[in-house]
């Protein structure tokens, strides 16, 4: 029994690709369509079914080379998607958290003694991280579109992954810093409101999820040869 040459080629190609499931499926569907179209064209020229299918696969190119080019595109697409998420989610998450804090806890100054200057510095830096990370992601998206044809796709994929990782890293660092600083200053502030503790937990879940997306971007970009 056997799988024919087109099935084997398509399966082999699919097994080498990593990225969004939908995008991989689209590329594989398109590949199969192209190979079937080429087979039909070769049949019309008088080749046998077996010869036509074999020739279609040969013309398509060595599977390793084609997979490499496909993977570069999948990696850029994954990087783009992650940067879009970062550009949208980070500022929204930060605004939601701050709005919730103002409603449920009120300004930090309302807690007796004003916080020391080092704490305010960390708090302000943390407030900026989401905006800066989101801005960097946005700029990277615009530049990525402008430079799409000017630079090698593999390089763009790696850059997108690096920017995504850096952006999430900065936000993570800001959140860890404010958490540690608050615990150092007055640990009870961390648990003074259950809804805010839940909001913080959601924020951490989102940051970790974005971190995993950025990590997968890098994985998609670095398996390209």
């Amino acid at each position: 029994m056997g799988t024919d040459v087109i099935d084997r080629y398509v399966t082999d190609l699919g097994s080498r690709l990593q990225g969004s499931k939908k995008q991989v499926r689209d590329l594989i569907t398109e590949t199969r369509d192209s190979l079937e179209d080429a087979t039909e064209a070769h049949l019309e020229q008088g080749l046998t079914e077996t010869e036509a299918r074999k020739k279609a696969v040969e013309e398509f190119g060595p599977v390793k080379e084609i997979a490499n080019e496909y993977q570069a595109e999948l990696a850029v697409a994954y990087g783009t998607r992650t940067l879009i998420w970062l550009a949208i989610i980070l500022p929204l998450m930060h605004m939601a958290w701050e709005y919730g804090r103002m409603l449920l806890i009120g300004p930090w100054q309302d807690f007796g003694t004003p916080p020391p200057s080092w704490y305010l510095f960390i708090a302000k830096a943390n407030d900026l991280t989401s905006g800066v990370a989101s801005g960097v992601a946005l700029v990277a998206l615009v530049l990525g579109r402008i430079l799409a044809r000017k630079y090698d796709t593999k390089l763009l994929a790696k850059l997108a992954a690096a920017i995504a990782l850096l952006a999430v890293g900065v936000v993570l660092l800001g959140n860890v810093a404010i958490l540690v600083a608050t615990a150092h200053l007055d640990v009870s502030r961390l648990m003074q409101s259950l809804p805010m503790s839940i909001a913080s937990l959601i924020s951490w879940t989102v940051i970790i999820r974005l971190g995993l997306l950025a990590r997968r971007c890098l994985s998609c970009a670095t398996i390209v040869g």
């Binding site: 689209d26 590329l27 013309e59 190119g61 084609i66 496909y70 595109e73 850029v76 799409a148 796709t153």
Partner: peptide, 23 residues
């Protein structure tokens, strides 16, 4: 040209906003 190289090139053009695609 290996015909398989056309598809990533089409995606690149789509990414650059030079072509659109529909199923």
């Amino acid at each position: 040209l290996p015909t398989g190289t056309v598809y990533p090139a089409l995606r690149r053009l789509e990414r650059a906003g030079h072509v659109t695609s529909d199923w």
